[in-house]
Design a protein around this nucleic acid. Structure first.
Length: 473
DNA sequence: TCTGGGGTCCTAAAGCAA
DNA sequence: TCTGTTGCTTTAGGACCC
């Protein structure tokens, strides 16, 4: 999918279409998750610190990610892919490999291209978004082709043309070559794919080690026979938090680790898993990162056991100077059933844990007090008089809302007090009114779309207001 | 206002057992 | 009994990906 998070936001917010949109963490230490193509013109890109993005594109719309919405759209796209082949390997919410041959829908260039064209049309019809397709004989080449195809395109790499195509490309094009390896190779005078080939396999292994060296050399020759794997089992489960300001207080550090351990267990149990190795991660004030781990005799999903292990690991870490990030993870995963017996044997009382689904936005499950509701930029809201809209920004006791829906014209902006009883959080509306395939689900989709178009209404008392303010107190 | 969160894979060192 | 080799497991760190 093209600029996935940003595209979803543009689709659900008519006033943002054609505009620079940046989705990411809005706190003082946030980074960009996705920038719309309009924002990329200013030099904004993924993984860039938000502060830098704001300097480059001060007039862009800055929004917090809404993972549950993205996930639901992702699932619809994955369904389309699974209709093509049983062999679908998701790489992330917005990318997947599909083995078209295994699905029997494509066996030569013509049939593959046809399948690709139809897929792109289906994605558009079902989600209202654009996706790009890369077609080739291997995963690596398909991936490169899809990069070339973006945005909103389709690229085929024909068998026999691979080497010539790859040759002049930067080594950074190849999967597995990031900043570090790229630098390493550059210092050895290797900047293009054909220079990797010229250097030879032995030299690559000498430079990068066995696994990486052999692998990269093969990739440079366009040799890649990695299969498309449909179901890959998780190897680890982890949670981590970066704090807005470094934590110095050792007691507080300990408490945070306990909280993280509990969140980690919730996720672990939600997935029906238990694990044997507990990992504590600490990023210090100077960004140096260290991990400490402990392997238990057997797998567990017991919150007390994991909390205690994490606390022991913390004992061996010096946190003077402050920490900016803490994380707790579990690896060496095993099935839950096996663990169940273990937990029973330990005679541990089951901790009354909440629902398995975790909220993406708020780490804390606090009672949502009247005046202290949070209004994250970009989230949907409903007003009893003005209908459906989204939070453009909040701060200083005010929240600014734009009233529009995916199918409306760009809407008006109004500002309210954060404790306005007429305003409440709302679920996202579907981006497309009816899907092309399947019966129309979403019972109420049509009526919602019609009802909430804001006609001209009394003036609010707010000024136009600048861009979205951060919502941190 | 420097640098998220959730993962995967690889390497190297150290301890231990055969 | 001493020494060397090999292999497995645990631990820590680093690179990479989206």
């Amino acid at each position: 999918m093209d600029a996935f998070f940003a595209s979803v936001e543009q689709a659900s917010k008519p006033s943002l279409r054609g505009k620079a949109v940046v989705v990411g963490g809005l706190g003082p230490r946030g980074v960009v998750a996705t920038a719309s193509y309009e924002a990329r013109v200013f030099g904004v890109h993924s993984a860039m610190p938000m502060g830098q993005a704001r300097r480059l594109a001060p007039n862009a719309a800055y929004l917090v990610p809404r993972f549950t919405l993205y996930k639901s759209i992702s699932e619809r796209v994955m369904e389309l892919l699974r209709a093509l082949s049983p062999l679908v390997e998701p790489l992330s919410l917005d990318e997947a490999f599909v083995d078209l041959e295994a699905g029997g829908v494509a066996w030569d260039e013509r049939s593959a291209r046809l399948a690709g064209v139809k897929l792109r049309a289906d994605i558009r019809a079902v989600t209202g978004l654009t996706g790009s397709v890369g077609l080739a004989a291997s995963k690596m080449l398909a991936k490169i082709a899809s990069e070339e195809a973006k945005p909103d395109g389709l690229v085929v790499i024909e068998p026999g043309t691979e080497r010539a195509l790859l040759g002049p490309m930067s080594v950074r094009t190849l999967p597995g070559v990031g900043p570090a390896t790229g630098d390493h190779l550059r210092r050895a005078g290797i900047t293009t794919v054909e220079e990797i080939v010229e250097a030879g396999e032995d030299e690559l292994v000498r430079l990068l080690g066995k696994a990486h060296g052999h692998g990269l050399y093969a990739m440079a020759l366009a040799r890649d026979d990695r299969p498309v794997v449909a179901e890959r089992e998780a190897k680890s489960v982890s949670v981590e938090d970066t704090y807005d300001v470094d934590i110095h207080d050792r007691t507080r550090v300990g408490l945070e680790v306990q909280r993280l351990a509990e969140r980690c267990v919730r996720r672990l149990r939600g997935a029906g898993l238990s694990g044997r190795t507990i990992v504590l991660k600490v990023r210090r004030y100077d960004f140096s990162t260290l991990t400490r781990s402990e392997t238990l005799r057997g797998p567990t999903d017991d919150p007390a056991v994991i909390r205690e292990a994490a606390a022991r690991l913390l004992d061996s870490v010096d946190t003077t100077g402050g920490v900016r990030l803490l994380g707790v993870g579990v690896s060496g995963l095993a099935d839950y059933t096996q663990e169940d017996l273990f937990a029973q044997a330990a005679g541990e009382r089951a901790v009354a844990e909440g629902p398995v689904e975790e909220h993406t936005a708020a780490p804390d499950e606090e009672p949502p007090s009247l005046a202290e509701r949070r209004w994250p930029a970009g989230h949907d809201v409903r007003h009893t008089r003005f209908g459906h809209g989204w939070v453009q920004g909040s701060g200083l006791g005010r929240v600014t809302v734009r009233f529009e829906t995916p199918s409306s014209q760009p809407g008006r902006v109004r500002t309210f007090r954060v404790d306005d009883p007429d305003l409440e959080a709302a679920d996202p509306l579907p981006l497309v009114l009816r899907g092309t395939e399947g019966a129309n689900e979403a019972p109420g989709a049509g009526s919602q779309a019609v009802s909430s178009v804001p006609a001209s209404l009394p003036k609010s008392w707010s000024g136009s207001g600048g861009g979205a303010a951060t919502s941190r107190p």
